[in-house]
């Protein structure tokens, strides 16, 4: 890359060895300049992405405790942290919860986001205003959002139960956040609410890029309504859909604040995911080694999806 850039207007064809000293110095200067431009970016990536990830991977194999911060000693324990994590009673629960939480959230966010995107594609009075209002959950700080949802979902005085009871849908209050069978559903519902704007926005802009001519031509051939969606909208939207789904999975896997704010992983670990378990181990029990081991599992899962994303992206560019 540097050689092609370094080729000056006159020195391009001349072999470097025969270049006069002044030109060679100019060339070195140019090279230095190029590197100086690269260094900040490289340093940024190494310091803020490379180091934390490598450090986390290494921590997973160490007995990394409070003591480590003072003495700097972190004895190597091999796979002991992973053995402890996998054999703990909570591991299976957290994996199942993480999968359910991610699948449930993505399904809900995507379907509702797509419906909204399709809805707003037809322009109508105030559609722009309404569309911006739908972005609100995205703008709210998550902790504030989850505090309000805790009130809404409160078993005794919460507005949701009051309303459902008022219109006669339910007789007894639903224990949204306090029943181990329902809490995960409630947390997923809130996370769907958070994720709708992201899905809607990306899918909406994807829809905008589908040329109207396609629909006009399709209409002549009798493709309207559902047929138009199946044969025109969906295939044209596929690249965007891939990106939305893969990014959604990665964002959802690591969700921490919503769960901590709503249930703290309870009741009885019903909403404990890999992310919250890693947090609990590291920052409540100060067992940073096992906490890192859990988050490494999470990193590997995210990485798989990141690779899927990159491949989907490349395919999208090729098309």
């Amino acid at each position: 890359m540097t050689t092609t850039l370094a080729a000056g207007p006159t020195g391009a064809s001349a072999p470097p060895r025969s270049a006069p000293p002044t030109r060679r110095r100019a060339r070195r200067r140019e090279l230095t300049a190029q590197w100086l431009f690269l260094v900040p970016a490289i340093a940024y990536v190494l310091v803020f992405f490379g180091y934390p990830i490598v450090k986390n991977l290494v921590m997973g194999f160490q007995d990394y405790s409070v003591r480590t911060f003072v003495t700097g000693e972190a004895p190597w324990v091999g796979l002991a942290n992973y053995a402890e994590v996998v054999s703990s009673g909570i591991f299976q629960t957290t994996v199942v919860n993480t999968v359910l939480f991610t699948l449930g959230s993505i399904a809900g966010q995507f379907v509702i986001g797509l419906l909204f995107a399709l809805f707003f594609k037809r322009r109508f009075p105030l559609s722009n205003v309404l569309r911006s209002l739908l972005l609100l959950p995205w703008l709210l700080p998550m902790i504030a959002g989850s505090a309000v949802w805790r009130w809404i979902l409160d078993q005794d005085g919460g507005i949701l139960n009051q309303t459902l009871q008022g219109v006669g849908i339910i007789d007894d209050p639903v224990r949204w956040l306090t029943s181990p069978d329902i809490a995960l559903v409630a947390v997923i519902l809130v996370n769907v609410w958070v994720g709708i704007p992201f899905n809607m926005t990306l899918l909406y802009s994807g829809l905008q890029n589908i040329p109207d001519e396609l629909y006009e031509a399709g209409a002549l051939d009798g493709a309207t309504g559902w047929k138009a969606f199946r044969h025109i909208t969906w295939p044209s939207l596929r690249p965007v859909v891939n990106v939305v789904l893969v990014l959604g999975v990665i964002y959802t896997l690591k969700v921490l604040d919503i769960i901590l704010g709503l249930t703290g992983g309870g009741p009885a670990n019903a909403t404990q995911t890999l992310a919250t378990d890693s947090y609990r181990r590291s920052f409540q029990e100060f067992s940073f080694g096992t906490g890192a081991a859990v988050s490494n599992v999470l990193i590997v899962i995210s990485l798989v999806f990141a690779v899927v994303y990159l491949r989907a992206n490349r395919r999208a560019e090729d098309e």
């Binding site: 100019a26 200067r29 140019e30 230095t32 100086l36 431009f37 260094v39 900040p40 340093a43």
Partner: peptide, 19 residues
């Protein structure tokens, strides 16, 4: 030549901010 000069200047300014 002049261009290279300003480029070096800009890059070192960025480094100075980091420092």
């Amino acid at each position: 030549m002049r261009r290279t000069h300003t480029a070096v200047g800009a890059a070192s300014a960025a480094a100075a901010v980091v420092l």
